[in-house]
Computed example of a mutant assay.
Amino acid sequence: MNQKVNKKHEILKASMKIFALKGYHNTKIEDIAIEAGIGKGTVYQYFESKIQLFEEMVLYYIESYKEEIVEIIDENISLEEKLLKVANKNSKHVAEHFDMAEKIDVRENIISNEMKSKMLRKKEEIFSILECAIDQAIENGEVRNDLDKEVVISTFFGAVNVYCAGRYQRNNTMKAYVDPTPVVMFLMRALNK
């Protein structure tokens, strides 16, 4: 990775930490620069504004997450094992980014409609990756062949996210791991023949 791309990634990683800590409105570019170990002016060499940095950070995060999902789905393991690994990855992501989700009020319309469309396309890419895994599981006879894959995937992500987020809130265990295995086991019972 060249130095310019690496510097941009460092800024994006620092921004994730600072936006999570302070929220969008309380974050200053200066805070991100300090976290990244660079000058404020360097941030502006890569990003024109705080909103552009925020939106690119969101896309960077989603793309990184997607790459992790692809690695799991490409493994030569059963659908159940893949879903467990994805659920575990999701649980860790919920823990790591729960603070940011709580601090950024979606009603504030910080994110542009164009950005929302990009995020939706990324979500569809992730769903498509999981659809392929379900198709393979159907072909291998691991699960029923009459499944509505969109319902399965939506249920999977929704259940894992709500289960983990609920545990974090109830137990005040931010940054702690919540085991999503019960959710995956429940879902697999519904998918089996």
Rank of each mutant, 00 (worst) to 15 (best):
M1Y: 07
N2R: 03
Q3P: 03
V5L: 14
H9V: 11
M16E: 15
M16L: 15
K17L: 13
A20P: 03
G23Q: 06
Y24G: 09
T27H: 08
A33D: 06
I34G: 00
A36K: 10
I38T: 08
G41A: 13
T42C: 09
Y44C: 05
Q45R: 14
F47A: 08
E48L: 12
L53Q: 10
F54N: 12
E56C: 01
E56W: 08
V58W: 09
E63P: 00
I69D: 04
V70H: 03
E71P: 00
I72H: 03
I72V: 10
I73A: 05
D74I: 00
E75N: 10
E75V: 05
E80D: 09
E81Y: 01
L83W: 00
K85S: 00
K92F: 03
F98D: 14
D99H: 12
M100W: 08
M100C: 06
A101T: 02
K103A: 14
D105T: 04
E108S: 11
S112N: 13
N113T: 12
M115E: 12
M115Y: 06
S117A: 13
K118F: 11
L120K: 12
K122Y: 12
K123Q: 09
K123I: 05
S128W: 05
I129G: 00
E131N: 07
A137E: 04
I138W: 11
V143Q: 02
R144G: 05
R144I: 05
N145I: 07
N145R: 11
L147W: 02
D148N: 14
D148Y: 00
K149G: 00
K149Q: 06
E150R: 07
E150Q: 08
V152F: 10
S154A: 11
G158D: 09
A159V: 03
A159T: 05
N161L: 07
V162F: 13
Y163R: 01
M174Y: 11
D179K: 13
V184L: 04
V184F: 01
V184Y: 02
M185A: 12
F186Q: 12
L187H: 10
L187I: 02
M188C: 10
L191E: 03
N192A: 10
